[in-house]
Amino acid sequence: MPISRAELPADDAAALIDQLCQRWSGAKELDRAGDPVRVEFDNGTCYLQAKPDKLMVVVEALDDESHDALERDVDHALDALKGVELDIIWEA
């Protein structure tokens, strides 16, 4: 199961998670009750966790093709965040 992580500097990571959850409201499943927040898509799962000075993002999928596609989708969503400029570097 391929997994990748990114740590993104953020002054208000919780607000970024709110924006992402609004964007992904049509996801297969969205669980904001836990920490981290879990967003399940057809091709994998994204976990979001707010830390005092950063947003932690983890992407996992069942196969490499699905993982790459989900990572691109998450990249696109992060790039689209309002008022935020992020340099996203994924680590396996």
Results as ranks from 00 to 15, higher is better:
residue 38 R to C: 11
residue 52 P to M: 03
residue 63 D to K: 15
residue 5 R to G: 06
residue 43 N to L: 15
residue 5 R to M: 09
residue 65 E to I: 10
residue 58 V to A: 13
residue 29 E to R: 11
residue 30 L to M: 01
residue 5 R to H: 08
residue 21 C to K: 13
residue 18 D to Q: 12
residue 6 A to Y: 05
residue 67 H to L: 09
residue 87 D to W: 13
residue 15 A to V: 03
residue 12 D to K: 12
residue 4 S to C: 15
residue 42 D to G: 06
residue 87 D to K: 14
residue 28 K to F: 08
residue 82 K to V: 13
residue 49 Q to G: 08
residue 72 R to M: 09
residue 63 D to E: 15
residue 44 G to D: 07
residue 35 D to V: 07
residue 38 R to G: 08
residue 27 A to V: 00
residue 73 D to C: 04
residue 19 Q to G: 04
residue 72 R to P: 01
residue 74 V to D: 03
residue 63 D to M: 15
residue 22 Q to G: 05
residue 71 E to D: 02
residue 39 V to E: 03
residue 90 W to N: 00
residue 39 V to K: 04
residue 44 G to K: 07
residue 44 G to H: 07
residue 48 L to T: 15
residue 50 A to R: 02
residue 75 D to C: 11
residue 37 V to A: 14
residue 14 A to D: 11
residue 27 A to C: 03
residue 47 Y to A: 05
residue 90 W to I: 05
residue 34 G to S: 05
residue 30 L to P: 00
residue 75 D to H: 12
residue 80 A to R: 15
residue 71 E to S: 04
residue 84 V to Q: 14
residue 34 G to T: 02
residue 12 D to Q: 11
residue 47 Y to K: 00
residue 10 A to I: 09
residue 5 R to Y: 07
residue 48 L to H: 12
residue 32 R to W: 13
residue 68 D to W: 02
residue 87 D to V: 14
residue 51 K to S: 07
residue 24 W to T: 05
residue 79 D to I: 00
residue 67 H to A: 13
residue 8 L to C: 12
residue 6 A to N: 02
residue 37 V to M: 14
